[in-house]
Each structure stands twice: as structure tokens, then as C-alpha cells.
Design a protein around this nucleic acid. Sequence first.
DNA 1: GAATAGTCTGGTCAGATGCCCAAGGCAATC
DNA 2: GATTGCCTTGGGCATCTGACCAGACTATTC
Lengths: 191, 191
Amino acid sequence: MVRRTAADRGRDVRLRLLNTAAELITELGWAAVSTRILAERAGVTPGLVHYHFPSLQALLRDAALGMVSDLLSGAEALFDEARPLDAGLDVMFASLNADTATSTRSLLLAETYLAANRDEALRSELSALVAEFQQRLARWLAEHGASTPDDTASVLAATLDGLLLHRVVNPRLNSSTVAPVLRRLASAPPA
Amino acid sequence: MVRRTAADRGRDVRLRLLNTAAELITELGWAAVSTRILAERAGVTPGLVHYHFPSLQALLRDAALGMVSDLLSGAEALFDEARPLDAGLDVMFASLNADTATSTRSLLLAETYLAANRDEALRSELSALVAEFQQRLARWLAEHGASTPDDTASVLAATLDGLLLHRVVNPRLNSSTVAPVLRRLASAPPA
DNA sequence: GAATAGTCTGGTCAGATGCCCAAGGCAATC
DNA sequence: GATTGCCTTGGGCATCTGACCAGACTATTC
């Protein structure tokens, strides 16, 4: 028998709200997530939303930043495991396609970029997350002999996000077409 | 004295609605554009919106596709003029940064990708526009000795969009850091 | 001048929105 | 058993939402 105090249940509801908020942002778009839709999907009364969070926007911010943080950590783990540079690039892009959970979470990333355009607080927190990811990516590139690792990491990170967006309208984008080009992007310049 | 028939005024209002709709999508996000906000900004009564368009969504679709079409035509013109491959890449990315109008319109492009995820009709029309742009880009790359021009064009287009998104949170992204990496992406693979 | 056709107004409708709060719940502590 | 502290409910508030429409306006055609 598990003891479930009020505080436990509260933490649970808070978490469930954050998770379903992330889902709904990708499904409906950031601005279309409403208190009531969110509460219903989370199996909770609407009033609870404003008990656990100061505002709906604050909830969406927390939800988005949490998921983005998870997503970037996951990506870091991928290329950290795969030792050679080529394999790392392959694995990174492949994982974006294969896993539906990852794929929808990456749409959330794009939504968050756009929302960051309109929300100062969100922008600075997102900047920090992305900057840290790029530093690790740059370090990994440098360790594997890539040239101008910092600039390459910036562009590579942007490319990965762009590919996620483009997959919506471009079915040609799969591992075998993309990987060789990415390899060229990360390689040393031709003599 | 210019003759302004009723039909002329009508066409004018229709155009003004489309233009301000595009503005508002980038400012507020797709789902946050409402009939009344749009009408007020366009200097028009709310009722007019549903006279000229069957629904608000249809208006937003038309507005977005129109602007995206303009944006892609503009980009095509840029790299068509700049004969060498390197110069073309430079000019393409530089123009995205320099011109504020172009820069906001490119945020509209990202909003449209995400909206296309939820709107079948929008998705197919956007796919067609992007596919045509990529074909021209691939042809241009091929003419300038790039390898695997089709795949390269797909990834390059995604990279450009990704860079637009990332500029929001990454101040390092400017012409001088990005251009060399793009050049590597488009170049022939090292022997 | 009458008829026609396209454009526009102002208002209405039912429903959704974010946020708030008094009242009740329940487990831990005294 | 009383008290304390956190969680939860259900309803209410003012405001906004997309869509609709009867009627007015105006330039063109007869």
C-alpha cells in the first residue's frame, strides 16, 4: 500500500498538466491551448490549472522548456555514444525520424522558438538551453577532427531543426538522402 | 482623377486583409489571429472579413501561401543573379538577416510549416511551393558543379529555414560564421 | 430614373476564454 | 479530537470568439 499524501497528489497533477500541455502545444499550436482543453485532457477541473501555476502562459513556458531540455539531453546522449563522426550524424538524424515521441517533441521545439519571439523570459531560458547543447555538439565535433567546430555546431543544430520542419512537406527527407550532405557539412573543407 | 469603382475598393480591402493577416500571424502566432483584431488593424469592420472570405482559416491560408510564394520567388531571384556558387550562398543568407521585412516574412514561413501540420489543404499547397523552390535550387546547384544537387537542395533549404528559427536565440549566427559552413555543405565531397 | 450588382455596416448570437474564489476535502501534526 | 496546511471543487465574472444577416450604400447598366 502506497501512502499518497495530498502533497504527493499535487505533485502528480502538476506533472500531468505539464505533460499534457506539451502534447497540446504540438497538436493545436501554442496559442490554441486553453485552460479548459488542457484540464479536460489531463483529467482535472479547470480551476486546478490556476492553482498550480500563476498563469496559463507560465504553464506553457515551463512545459515547453522541460520537454526541450529532455529532447536536447537525449540528442547529446546519442552522439556521445556513437564514437565516429559519421555514425553520430547518422544516428542523430535517424532518431528524429524513427521515434514518434521524439518527432512530435521536435515540433514542440519549433513552436517554442516561435513563442520565444514574443516572450522575453522564454527567449532567454531557451537561449541558454540551446547554447549549452551547441557547446557540447561543438566539443564533440572538435574531438572528431571537424573544422571550425563552433560555427559548424551552430549551423548543424539549425539544420537539424530545419529538417524537422521540412519533413512535414518534403517526403524525400530520410536518412539515406540527408546523411551524406550532413557529413559534408561537418567535414574538413576540401583542400 | 482615378475612377474607383466598388469592385476596385473591394479588391483593395481584400488585399489589405491578406497583408495585415500575414503581419499578425508572425506577431501573435497563427492561432491568436482573430477576426476583430485583424479587422481593426486593417481599418475595416469585422463583418467585412466574412464577406470577403468564407472563414478566418481560409483567409489565413491564403495570406500565408501568398507571402511564402513571394518569399521563395525573391530567394530564387537572388541566387539566379549571383552567378558563382559561393556568392549565391552568401547573398542568400545575408538577405535573410539584413532586410527586416524578409526576416519577419521568414518567421511566417515557420508558422506556416507548423500550421500545415494541422491543415491538410495547407500542407499540400505548401508542399508544392517548397518542392518547386527546391527544384530550382537543385538546378542552380547542379549548374555550379555541386554534387548530389537534389539531396543538397533539400538539406540546404531546411538549413536556411532552421537558421531563421535559430537566429531568435543564437546571436552568433551571422554571415561570416555561417557562410563557410554552407559552402562546405554545397561543395563536392573531399576526395 | 429605375434596376442591378457588388460592397459595406452595425448589431446579434451562442459559446469559449483566462482568471478568481469561497467552500470543502483529507492527511499529518499537535 | 482539534488544528494546521495543502489540494480540490464548482461556479461565477467580464471579456472575447467566429459566424451570420438584414439592411444601407454606391457605382454601373439599362
